[in-house]
């Protein structure tokens, strides 16, 4: 919101950056975020605009994997919207039912939009979370790789 007022056309890069940190915060537990925040500059005061509240998102698939969409089933999602004193609005939608995670993610979304706080919060919170998530994914990928079948081809008699 404040970004839109500052720059004429910040949408593509600003929304790409928000998409990135929102996705990382959605995958982080409240405890992980809270422990990283201990070493970060204090978050600004905020006021709740909506929630935190838990509801559902209908997850969709595609028939045949790449055809028309169909409704697979719902998942629980918690959302929260907050505003900072300067009017910046932060949003969060996170899978699961953790209201604390959703609220802190919304506050971080707002604070990260402030150019004065962004670099330090990215370094203190978002980047370590991203690294931990990448490490978990890499560990799964490595375990999967160890179960990849290496076929032996028998030499044929001619």
């Amino acid at each position: 919101m404040s970004l839109a007022a500052d720059a004429p056309n910040p949408a593509p890069t600003a929304s790409a950056a928000r998409r990135c940190w929102m996705g990382i915060l959605a995958r982080a537990s409240r405890a992980e975020i809270a422990s990283l925040l201990q070493a970060a500059p204090p978050l600004p005061a905020h006021r709740r605009l909506r929630g935190p509240e838990t509801g559902l998102v209908m997850a969709r698939g595609r028939q045949g994997g790449d055809g028309a969409p169909f409704n697979l089933g719902e998942l629980t999602v918690t959302r929260c919207s907050i505003t900072l004193d300067d009017g910046t609005v932060g949003h969060a939608y996170v899978a699961g039912r953790d209201a604390g995670q959703a609220e802190i993610a919304a506050v971080l979304d707002a604070a990260l939009q402030d150019p004065g706080r962004q670099a330090s919060l990215l370094a203190a919170v978002i980047e370590p979370l991203a690294a931990a998530q990448a490490a978990r994914a890499a560990r799964d990928a490595a375990r999967a790789a160890a179960t990849r079948v290496q076929f032996f081809t028998m030499a044929t008699m001619r």
Binding site: E53, L56, V57, A141
Partner: peptide
């Protein structure tokens, strides 16, 4: 529970296998 949204179709081609 209220329904907030429908998701974009899952991209199973991009699955982390």
């Amino acid at each position: 529970l209220p329904r907030f949204a429908g998701s974009e179709p899952l991209d199973t081609g991009a699955m982390r296998i």
